[in-house]
């Protein structure tokens, strides 16, 4: 029956965390995700890690895309990940980081549980494809 059939949509939170006010990239991603058929929740600017965690848990997103251009990823991302873990939401959330992350910082983020890092020059198709392939399915 169609009411049992399911109408799944990939839900994404596009998050701007910390002090950097550059949200052009986040906007572009949000729109591209929408056009790819995803449901996108945009956090707005200058959010604290707690706010991002609250939004990710309540909205039960499949994908959390964190945009950081300030270089504060090494303090902000761990805080978000800890928060997700506290609510039991870490395991089935695909965490992406977008922005400028120096090569030497990347391994640490991957170890924390970040699935992929998209730096300048990443193509939109590549990002969308990655989400399609890796978004948690078993709900």
């Amino acid at each position: 029956m169609s009411t049992e059939q399911g109408q799944r949509a990939i839900r994404c939170l596009v998050a701007k965390v910390g002090l950097d006010g550059h949200d052009r990239g986040a906007h572009v991603i949000a729109r591209a995700f929408r056009d790819a058929g995803f449901e996108v929740i945009y956090s707005g600017l200058h959010k604290s890690p707690e706010e991002i965690v609250q939004a990710a848990v309540q909205e039960d997103v499949d994908v959390l895309g964190i945009s950081i251009l300030s270089g504060a990823h090494d303090t902000l991302v761990p805080k978000i990940i800890d928060g997700l873990e506290e609510y039991g939401a870490l395991e089935d959330t695909l965490i992406l980081v977008g922005g400028i992350v120096p090569e030497e910082d990347r391994d640490e983020l991957y170890e924390l549980g970040v699935a992929e890092i998209f730096g300048p020059g990443s193509s939109m198709e590549e990002t969308i494809e990655f989400v399609r392939e890796n978004a948690p399915r078993d709900r």
Partner: peptide, 24 residues
Amino acid sequence: TGGAVLGDRIRMASNVGDMDVFFR
């Protein structure tokens, strides 16, 4: 496309970090 940008959450500025406001 079935896609959507759900923008209402941005306005929930007075209740950030308060889990007793469950916004969906």
